[in-house]
Design a binder for these strands. Structure first.
Lengths: 333, 333
DNA sequence: TTGAAAGCGCTAACAC
DNA sequence: GTGTTAGCGCTTTCAA
């Protein structure tokens, strides 16, 4: 299991190991004949560059830490997929960490990543407190926040225009004839405040009354959405459409509605937010607002590369456009 | 952005840097008074161990490469979640790579991982050819295959008893009164051969005629399942139940059935395999066979640790038990 | 164009 | 119990 080193190759080639290093790094300062000979030899001997040793001297690991609350979440795994593909195409590898639900673990993994000497960190915050939580580290390593809006914080992030998402969704509902639209779900993070604001703004413009049914739950999931929706349907249904703050919440509501005998979309139209892949499933066919996950991931990687490779200081807030995905849970009224 | 090193701490503490190293590694050979003083100092100075440098001398990186065809796949992201949590609790971090659909990329990322000096590799093969494809590397680094059955190959893997899964599923259908059961989907990998075998075995025992409707498609997805099922429903439905080779296939079939006006579960019972999280969604509520993803991931990590830390040679085939998840798509007949 | 040598930050073997 | 020192495999000056 002993691996072949530069030295071994050098000895076999009868040159110094600096020469081998040069041949491999495509340096200009080397005869093309020797280079070819050496490259061929490396191949034959099965030599592979030891990145650890290289990192030692270059002070670059080519590693990007990706921190997500939980990778077994459709939204994050889609983000992670595109992030890894994009990062790798630029010579970076991804170190994956789940930060879980508590701030302590989030802090721990970020510190861990620093110890690992990652060149940069991409993080999907688990809570609005994340920014404070890891502030001590964000000026030690290039960091980009993903998907969560930080509003005016001096940190780079890429997120969707959440407010616009709910705005266009609400307008769509209005065009379908709905005049009593309930907003269902979270309002406790910046992202969700913005979503609520978009809804409110649309309501104002359209002359509608905004109405909320809020969640106390800390994160949105099908289960939490279901629990909350059970409470909702214990009361009279005096509205004709529901805007759920996330697809997960919408899915939970769908379940509660089916159980309560509230027909969706017959009696109630429903729209979600995120366009996670489950929404496209048969029998679900949920109308929703798309967050362009691929673009988000790619732009976050580019932003991070810019910081890493060009040492770009300052921060940029990259806001992408969401768009409506019309499916089966919204009907004209 | 210059970080604090052992040397800095040593100078500040007025000791040699070996002493600091000892204090940090919890070595016995050091006075408890100096140890405490140093640890406190490290904390104050914001020192964090440089893992790259440590790896240089210990020849261990504490890194595990996780190779999956695509992390944006419910089954794999669940596996990845548990693998990362378990690995980290034992001091390892995960380097994530998507191997995509082609063998070339799979080989590339494995080689990449070797260059990164990972201590071990966990891989969900993308095809039955994976074993051959990466054979050159599997004896250079401890490797564990995940979720795909390798039958008699001399490689460690953890997988579910696929044959038993379809066996118990078929028996369940029989108990519900079904006598005409169609097997729908893939049969081209070892895993899927085993699933087909379990179905055949059950049919023989129960005196049923085994019937197949096969896929030419290379991987199972909702879309592929849907396409295939459209062909299926273009023919007369002279069976009362369908065993889909995967949940994804089942979901695709569900869509085609709905479109073709074939009532599930009224006219046709349907059972899938994998128990991906979408199956539990409202309106889907798919009966299926659970693959214990958490156990699989945890056992794979343990197996890998054993190879890494104890240098255990040889291989082990770890087969876990699948079990039936009764939900709404199967009815008595 | 090539070689010699320093050194990245750390651990571990060996002295004292 | 603590200090000294030799590397780990590589890149990168600096000489030649």
């Amino acid at each position: 299991m002993k691996s072949v080193t530069l030295k071994d190759v050098a000895k076999a080639a009868g040159v110094s190991y600096a020469t081998v290093s040069r041949a491999l790094s495509g340096s200009r300062q080397i005869g093309s004949d020797t280079r070819e000979r050496i490259i061929k030899l490396c191949d034959e001997m099965g030599y592979t560059t030891n990145y650890v040793a290289r990192s030692m001297v270059t002070k670059k690991t080519g590693l990007i830490g990706l921190v997500v609350p939980s990778i077994d979440n459709q939204f994050m795994s889609e983000l992670a997929y595109h992030a890894e593909m994009s990062a790798r195409s630029h010579g970076y590898n991804i170190m994956l960490c789940n930060s879980g639900p508590d701030l302590k673990q989030e802090k721990t993994v970020v510190r861990l990543l620093l110890g690992r000497q990652v060149d940069g960190i991409m993080i999907v915050p688990q809570s609005p407190k994340t920014y404070e939580n890891i502030r001590a580290y964000t000026d030690q390593v290039p960091t980009v926040f993903l998907s969560e809006n930080l509003r005016d914080q001096p940190q780079s992030y890429v997120a969707v225009d959440n407010s616009r998402g709910t705005y266009i969704g609400t307008k769509y509902l209005y065009e379908l004839g709905h005049r009593e639209i309930l907003y269902f779900g979270r309002r406790h993070t910046t992202t969700h405040q913005l979503r609520a604001e978009g809804y409110i703004r649309a309501c104002q413009e359209l002359g509608l009354q905004s109405r909320f049914f809020n969640s106390e739950y800390s994160h949105s999931s099908v289960t939490n959405g279901y629990q909350l929706a059970k409470e909702l349907f214990a009361q009279p249904v005096d509205y004709t459409a529901v805007f759920a703050s996330t697809d997960s919440n919408a899915l939970g509501l769908l379940k509660a509605a089916d159980e309560a005998g509230v027909d969706i979309p017959g009696r109630l139209s429903l729209i979600g937010f995120d366009n996670i892949s489950s929404t496209a499933l048969p029998r679900i066919d949920l109308t929703t607002i798309e967050q362009p996950k691929r673009d988000m991931a790619v732009q976050a990687v580019d932003m991070l590369r810019d910081k890493i490779e060009n040492g770009t200081q300052g921060y940029v807030h990259q806001i992408l456009m969401p768009f409506l995905i019309k499916r089966g849970t919204c009907r004209t009224r």
